[in-house]
Amino acid sequence: MSDLVIHVVDLVREYQMGAERIQALRGVSLEIRRNEYVAIMGPSGSGKSTMMNVLGCLDTPTSGEYWLAGQEVSRLSDDALARIRNREIGFVFQTFNLLPRATALQNVELPLVYGGVGGRDRRDRARRALERVGLGNRMDHRPNELSGGQRQRVAIARALVNEPAILLADEPTGNLDSTTSADVMRVFDRLQTQGQTIVLVTHEAEIAAHADRVVTLRDGRIASDLRQDRTRAA
């Protein structure tokens, strides 16, 4: 098996908006290898969000192929996609998307709940994931008892807990101030050095600068795909 984690071929995604057909993606092809650190950039309306949804298996393409960790997932059913999201993808969202009534630990346990991991094993794995992001002492706090940076780290722990093939982050620092942003980016950088494949969707050049490779979308197509020397926060 190759070390291709994501292999997208000629991806098209169309939406029906009233009488009009809108093409959000117009034939995107992309390969991402294991342990790559990729930023997907582009102005609003470039197809960035659609790309993120399709890559995250939240949405399916109108045509084209999407191979994720060796499996073609573009034609799968709802429930099969849920399985893939559960096992292969870890999401980090701009708005954190934590369950407000659940504690940090319970939030991190969620993917394991749906993955059928039970009991002590589940708690241990969730605890380890929280420790990995430096929140071992905040496990029983609810999201409203945590700072923005801490919440995002809980979300990262949740994304990691199932050891997904890719970590998919959508504007992960969009709701954070610059200090906590740097904090969160340090976590991503460290995860990448530990072997995690990371895809960042962002419109901030500063954030994209952390990646090894920047893919820029424009009008639903890849406008550029550049490798770069990453800048790493000290």
């Binding site: 995250g56 709802d78 849920a82 559960n86 999401f91 998307n97 369950l99 969620l110 749906y114």
Partner: peptide, 16 residues
């Protein structure tokens, strides 16, 4: 609704 969306993004199937 939002909670349901979050759960689904984390792998909850319809039946869950």
């Amino acid at each position: 609704t939002r909670e349901i969306g979050i759960r689904k993004s984390l792998g909850a199937r319809r039946r869950d």
